[in-house]
Design a protein around this nucleic acid. Structure first.
Lengths: 129, 129
DNA sequence: CTTGACGTTGACGTAAACGTAAAGCACTAT
DNA sequence: ATAGTGCTTTACGTTTACGTCAACGTCAAG
């Protein structure tokens, strides 16, 4: 029988291409809470999942504090109706935000495409002469 | 005959929902270069276009310095072949970056949808009992 | 047993992106 | 003439997201 795999701080840092300082910073802000064996940190799959979410959130330009509230949402208690309704409300806010970003990215890609076409036209004119 | 419209710093700031300090900061970094009439700044349509691009870039999480290189690209000289090829190369880099972000946003929205479904299921079970 | 390799906790430093006075010019309105 | 409104520069303050030592613990290898 194989027990659940774990990782050291150096391993997760290398794997996600960040420094150990960064990983510890995220822990300071409460974004990840690795197990402790004595004084050493032990990272589980759950921590890696969270790290992935954090870094994606960062690529999307969210501040770390906001990222924390988002990924905490996934682990929030949903036993009572009021809790569930709160979570569903939060989900809606997040979606609104993300859909704005989706439009932003799509617009930017479209503009880039138009601009590229203009450049290619210019290039064609240079060839033609 | 109507001459080209212009705006004051207060007007553009209000319109884009930023402070005049922010607008001036972007000028300090060379992202916009409004005309001067005496000591006063006069903003033209071109400046507003750039401000829109800047803010969208910010929503996408790009640092201002990178935003500057991007929007400068649109005004870069494209007279010679080498210049055009440079610009086309830059466009490709940008597109690669933006497509990564597109995937990120789409993944995030998808995950949010799955999570919402789980929550709604939980809510249904509460109703059903 | 001591030397690395890797880990730990402070604690201070820094770059980016503005915020926030402070102090002064320019024009208009009373 | 002076008071007010809006714009200007200068300059230090703040927050976020880490970087960068310093100083020390721990465990396997030589």
């Amino acid at each position: 029988m194989t027990s659940a795999p774990t990782w050291t701080i150096a391993e997760v840092a290398q794997e996600f291409d960040v420094t150990h300082r960064t990983v510890r910073h995220y822990e300071d802000l409460g974004l990840i809470t690795p197990e402790r064996r004595g004084t050493q940190r032990v990272y589980h799959r759950r921590d890696r999942t969270r790290l992935g979410l954090i870094l994606r959130g960062k690529r999307l330009g969210f501040p770390l504090e906001e990222i924390r509230t988002i990924i905490d949402l996934f682990d929030a208690p949903r036993g009572r109706r009021t809790q569930l309704e709160y979570v569903l409300g939060q989900i809606d806010e997040r979606r609104t935000d993300l859909e704005q970003r989706l439009r932003d990215v799509q617009d930017a890609i479209a503009e880039l495409g138009e601009f590229e076409q203009r450049c290619r036209d210019d290039l064609g004119r240079l060839d033609h002469v």
